[in-house]
Simulated assay, not measured.
Amino acid sequence: MPTPSGPGPSGPGRDPTLGSLMAERRRLLDVGYRMLGSVQDAEDVVQETYARWYALSEEEQQAVDTPLAWLTRVASRVCLDHLASARVRRERYTGEWLPEPVRGGAAWTSAAGGGAGDPADRITLDESVGMGMLVVLDSITPAERVAFVLHDVFGVPFTEIAETVGRSPAACRQLASSARRRLAHRRPVGGTGPEHGRVVSAFREACETGDLAALVALLDPDAESRSDGGGKVRAALRPVVGRDKVARLFLGLMRREPEVELGEEGINGAPGLTVRVAGTTVAVLTLEVRDGLITHLWLMVNPDKLHGWTSGGPSAGRDHRTR
């Protein structure tokens, strides 16, 4: 999405520099992606937010004490409306709906914003972009999601969140608390980084060699795999549960495409796998690892959600180790 041009002295942040505008845009993308789980939708939200800013008169812009806070509040309102309509659209979605994966950590800004609140409740941008957390965020109410993301990730005070969701600060605190309880089991435990990478590498090698026993040994007994084809390509329409079924599913996928290549790469802030056929990325796999075993696998095969690999979308930490 092009950066809004011609802000003049009354533009966002009242700073006409390109760097200031880009920093604001990255902050809004951060918010939008965590709210919606889609880079494309987040970009639409940012565009709508800037359009509303530039629709203000110069006097109205000058009356805004903190333009970035105003932009964040408006973007959050747009996200809230989008989340409500998204639930209706997903009732017609073919198969499982999963968040759009992103290369690297999807952190367009380097740190959560300041603001009042309880620092102990905060989570980092890397934590908030984990696929497991995004999946659970999609299961809570739109108001809970907005309150949680704004407060726990970006440090926005509940008094400001109240203006966004149209509830009292106390009610917003309860919304964030409810979301936090449901998300608690998705927070990563200490020391999982190197372990996660080791397990992903072992999973790749087991798939490539067709070693069923090794693959089963890497999976939790209740491992669950979910695939998103969006009705565009063939994919499992329901979750596949159980280590044996999941192992056989992935070995079957490997046999179906004899020319398939697996590559290890950072995806949503953690080691993951890309699936390429004839040099084209056709799928992206993210995994959740706990106590050395894979508990959840999310396979994205919907081409509409692979723009980060097919059209130069947001990317970082591109570690290609295809073998």
Rank of each mutant, 00 (worst) to 15 (best):
S76K: 02
D44M: 13
D65G: 07
Q40K: 10
E60A: 12
D81E: 08
H82A: 10
D65Q: 12
R73A: 07
T49S: 04
S76L: 02
A69G: 06
A51D: 10
L80I: 06
Y93F: 15
Q62N: 15
Y50S: 08
L68C: 03
H82F: 09
L71F: 00
A55T: 01
Y50C: 09
V78I: 05
D44Q: 14
Y93S: 06
S76F: 06
E59F: 08
E60W: 03
S57C: 05
T72E: 14
V46L: 06
A63L: 07
R73D: 13
E43Q: 12
T66N: 15
Q62G: 11
S76N: 13
A51H: 06
L80P: 05
E59N: 10
Q40D: 14
V88A: 11
R73E: 10
L68K: 04
R77Y: 05
R89T: 14
A86M: 09
V88G: 04
Q61T: 06
S57K: 06
R77W: 06
R52Y: 02
S57P: 07
R87N: 01
R77G: 01
E60S: 10
E59M: 10
S57V: 11
E48P: 15
V88L: 12
L68W: 01
E58P: 12
L83G: 00
R73S: 12
T49C: 03
R90D: 00
V78K: 02
V74H: 04
L56F: 11
E43P: 05
L56P: 11
R73L: 04
